[in-house]
Computed example of a mutant assay.
Amino acid sequence: MDRRRFITLVGAGVGTAGYGGTAVGVQRDDPALFEVVFLGTNSPIGAGELLWVDATIQNVGGETGTTDVDFIVGYDPVVEGSQTLTLPPRVREPVVFEFQAGQPSGGHEVFPVRLDTGAHMVTEIVVVTEDGRETVDPALFEVSTVRTNSPVGGGELLEVTATIENVGGETGRTNVDLVVGYDPAIEDSQLLTLGAGDRETITLEFRAGHPAGEGESFPIRVNTGAHKVTEMVLVT
């Protein structure tokens, strides 16, 4: 019960310790962009026990902004809690959510919990058992690092290098998508099969258009289906 499963440094924020993103990704005049940079739970838990989720949210954009951080539970998603945050640029703040677990079907139940800032969502798989004992988790693919060659010129190739890790307990397969823009579109995708604890680095690509005016910034996301990371890029 004292074991804490956690995801750290998943955001693309400039100034986030240990993150390998390009410092030019966020410009001073970029809008506010809220990311989940830490997520921890007390899973596994027993039937009827309290699941707690603590997280850190950071505004990686260039302006002060306000957003709702939603706590979403289950494969049939239900918002179980929400907090409103107002943060200046590059400032982070902790949030905590709680959820009362029910009686697991068949003595064992696995389901996702998510924190969603509206621009960035992180998923964690949690386990409820009759006695709260450890079980083998299913495959779960996370994006551990993202790097880009931003800024690029109009018509040039934007390259996104991502390291994907299976943090679950079983071998699994997933599509890793490169999602581009404020009106999101999948521009590239790769199918990965990884064993438990394995990781692989892949490169996804997107041909930039010609920006309006002197430059244009927009988000790109690397999405495994269970976890995604956002990075701001610049086309000049």
Rank of each mutant, 00 (worst) to 15 (best):
V78N: 07
T64A: 05
V95C: 12
I72Y: 05
L33F: 02
V78P: 04
I72T: 07
G74A: 09
V69A: 12
D29T: 12
F71E: 08
A32S: 10
P88C: 05
V24T: 11
F38Y: 11
S43M: 13
E35G: 01
G81D: 10
V36P: 00
T84D: 01
L39H: 07
L50V: 12
P31Y: 07
L87W: 06
V69M: 09
D76V: 03
V73F: 04
G81F: 06
T67F: 02
G40L: 15
L85H: 08
G40S: 15
A47W: 02
R28V: 13
Q100I: 14
T84Y: 04
L51A: 03
P44S: 04
G107Y: 08
V73K: 04
P89N: 09
G62P: 03
E63I: 09
E80D: 11
G65Y: 05
W52D: 15
G74Q: 13
Q83F: 10
F34P: 01
V26A: 14
V91F: 10
V53R: 10
Q100P: 11
F34Q: 02
F97Q: 07
D76H: 05
D68L: 02
T66N: 02
R90Q: 13
F97W: 13
L85R: 12
V26E: 09
V91K: 05
P31V: 01
I57M: 13
F97H: 06
H108F: 14
Q27A: 12
T84I: 09
P77E: 01
D68A: 05
Q83K: 15
T66R: 07
V91L: 07
D76P: 00
I45P: 06
S105I: 06
A23H: 07
I45K: 09
N59H: 03
S105G: 14
L33T: 00
V37T: 07
L50Q: 13
G81Q: 08
Q103E: 14
Q83H: 12
V96L: 15
D29W: 02
T66I: 07
V95S: 10
F34G: 01
T41P: 04
G74F: 14
I45Q: 03
Q83G: 03
S43D: 08
N42V: 04
V60R: 09
S82N: 06
Q83A: 10
L87Y: 11
F38C: 02
G48C: 07
V26T: 13
R92I: 10
A32Y: 03
V60Q: 14
L50G: 02
P89M: 11
D68F: 04
